[in-house]
Amino acid sequence: MDQTGPTARDAVRELQSRINQDIIGQERVVERIVIALLANGNVLLEGLPGLAKTRAIKSLSKNLESDFSRIQFTPDLLPSDVTGGEILRQDGSFEFRKGPIFGNLILADEINRAPPKVQSALLEAMEERHVTVAGKRYDLPPLFMVLATQNPIEQEGTYPLPEAQMDRFLMHVRIDYPSDADEVKVMRLVRSESVAAPAGAVPAPAMIPQQAIFDARAQIDRVTTKPVVETYMVALIAATRRPAEFGEHLKNWIAVGASPRGTLALDRCARTYAWLQERDYVTPEDVQAVAHDCLRHRLSLSYEAGADGMTPDAVLDEVVKQVAVAA
């Protein structure tokens, strides 16, 4: 790596460490958020209420030099509440007023509580990194990331996200309950935060500069992937599209496989994961480490899978088991 390598990596490690101090017992979730940030993608966090989804995103914005915007998705939200719109000025001309989507880090809170029309307002921004209003294009900042949260779709008052929008998320990360020991630490952390800081307390550390993220991305672009690993990634995707070739169970469980975005997500996230492990090449283990988060939202399971009690994660376990790494 070049001379900027240690500096960029140290900055990213420091960012990850600070978030872990705020979000106890969710190291894997924090790592996935950092991977999505470095891979220049969007992330969907799913979990029951109270599992620190919003807190994790706020911690990221608190420690990274950025403009933070929060959009609270509700049934009465309008698309213009997301993108902004034109207003009529006193002189008869129109002026575009930017909406909250024009920040660096966008918290789309409880995204599945708004109807599909509003959810679709994010599509162009997430994929193209610009919005079009009244026929005019407005570019988003170079550092742009949508971090959406959703409660499980079985919860009352939620709307399933359209498949097209789900596919725009680089990763779909699920958050589980912390361990009992970690929950004790959470309780103590929240209790300590409620105590007013004494006068002359140590000031907050400086924010991680955006340039550190751009430097890290430039280095990740130079992480190499051998043909055998590329073939392995494509084989994993192929197993979701042609499951009959990989076993009777997969044939019965998978209705629709992953799109080409799934392949690209595997590649980007595996290279980022390898970089975080201080390597400049990708291994099959790197691919396996990120496969579930990159693909769980890109599969459509069959009725038989539901009858068998199979989840996307369980199906992906079988995919990884059945697809061999070429020698």
Score class of each variant (00 low, 15 high):
27 E>S: 12
267 D>K: 03
306 G>K: 06
99 G>H: 01
126 M>E: 09
172 H>C: 11
167 D>P: 04
177 Y>T: 05
111 I>Q: 01
79 P>M: 09
3 Q>V: 12
118 V>R: 00
154 E>K: 10
278 E>R: 03
47 G>M: 14
298 R>D: 09
296 R>A: 04
261 R>I: 04
10 D>M: 14
263 T>E: 03
234 V>L: 05
308 D>F: 02
153 I>P: 04
202 V>H: 07
165 Q>T: 06
59 S>H: 08
264 L>N: 06
107 L>F: 13
219 Q>N: 14
37 L>K: 05
290 V>T: 11
5 G>Q: 07
146 V>D: 06
231 T>P: 00
231 T>Q: 13
125 A>M: 14
46 E>Q: 04
87 I>T: 09
112 N>K: 10
323 V>Q: 05
85 G>F: 03
109 D>M: 04
242 R>E: 07
211 Q>K: 05
203 P>H: 13
175 I>Y: 00
255 A>P: 07
85 G>T: 04
4 T>M: 07
11 A>K: 01
243 P>Q: 13
247 G>L: 02
84 G>I: 00
173 V>F: 00
195 V>Q: 12
185 K>E: 08
181 A>W: 14
57 I>V: 03
283 T>F: 03
198 P>D: 05
277 Q>E: 14
41 G>P: 10
182 D>K: 15
239 A>Y: 14
253 W>E: 01
92 G>A: 11
105 L>Y: 01
161 L>V: 05
321 K>C: 09
252 N>C: 10
155 Q>T: 08
149 T>E: 07
202 V>P: 10
90 Q>D: 02
124 E>R: 14
215 D>L: 15
252 N>I: 03
217 R>L: 02
54 T>S: 12
327 A>D: 07
56 A>D: 00
108 A>R: 08
229 V>S: 12
249 H>I: 09
140 L>G: 06
274 A>R: 08
223 V>S: 13
188 R>C: 03
43 V>H: 07
304 E>D: 13
226 K>Q: 10
294 C>G: 14
321 K>M: 06
221 D>A: 04
156 E>C: 15
16 Q>N: 06
134 A>T: 08
160 P>C: 12
14 E>L: 15
110 E>R: 02
45 L>V: 14
288 Q>N: 15
165 Q>S: 13
117 K>G: 12
122 L>Y: 12
13 R>Q: 11
11 A>P: 00
190 V>W: 12
